[in-house]
Amino acid sequence: MTSVSESIRIDSPVETVFEYLDDPYNHAEVTPSVTNVQNVERLNNGGKRLDCTYTMAGVGLNTELEQTVHEPNRRMVFDMHSGIDGKLELRFAEVNDGTEVTYTAEYEIPGRVMSKVVKPFAVKYNERELRTALENLKQRLELEGESEE
């Protein structure tokens, strides 16, 4: 299992940040590799199940995400099923009138030989992807907050 994690502080209340990311279509707005969000279904736990495309190195993977944990203003966990299976976790914490968001991705690269070749690339790619998604999220929410003032 491979794991990458990134954190960022956003000058927006935790409720605003959680609410924004609670909408699956917003993930496609801030995460460059996520497109074609569709078939969104609300689950009994408050979470969502959805289909999307996740692109890595120019290869689009049809991906199913199921939100197994939905703790408002605290945590979201998604099981990911595609060519690469894994888990995505978002944690939210109030800090100094803002929010710290920690985004962790754990995934399994299939095939023993393939994982040895692909793993270093996949780790760097996903570290950059998490960092970009969090920076986009910060920019989107902080700019929205300024325009409301």
Rank of each mutant, 00 (worst) to 15 (best):
P32S: 05
E66M: 06
A105S: 05
P13A: 14
P110G: 01
T16I: 14
G46T: 11
S115T: 15
E15S: 02
A133Y: 08
Q67R: 07
P110M: 01
L65F: 13
M76D: 08
S12Q: 10
T104N: 13
R112H: 12
S82W: 03
F78H: 10
D23K: 02
V113P: 00
N26P: 09
L21V: 08
H70I: 05
P13R: 08
F78D: 11
T68L: 09
E19S: 14
S7Q: 07
V123D: 11
P24H: 04
E71N: 10
Y125M: 10
A93E: 15
R131P: 06
T16M: 09
H27R: 09
N44H: 10
E19L: 03
Q38T: 15
T2S: 11
K87G: 00
T132K: 09
G86A: 01
R140V: 11
R128P: 08
R75G: 06
L130A: 08
Y107H: 11
E71G: 01
R140A: 04
G111K: 00
K87L: 13
L50N: 12
E149R: 14
E71L: 09
C52H: 04
G86T: 07
V118T: 09
Y20I: 07
G86L: 05
L143P: 02
E6I: 03
R74I: 10
M56Y: 06
L43V: 01
P24F: 05
M1A: 12
V113D: 03
V59E: 11
F92N: 00
N44M: 13
A133H: 07
E108H: 14
T16V: 15
T63P: 01
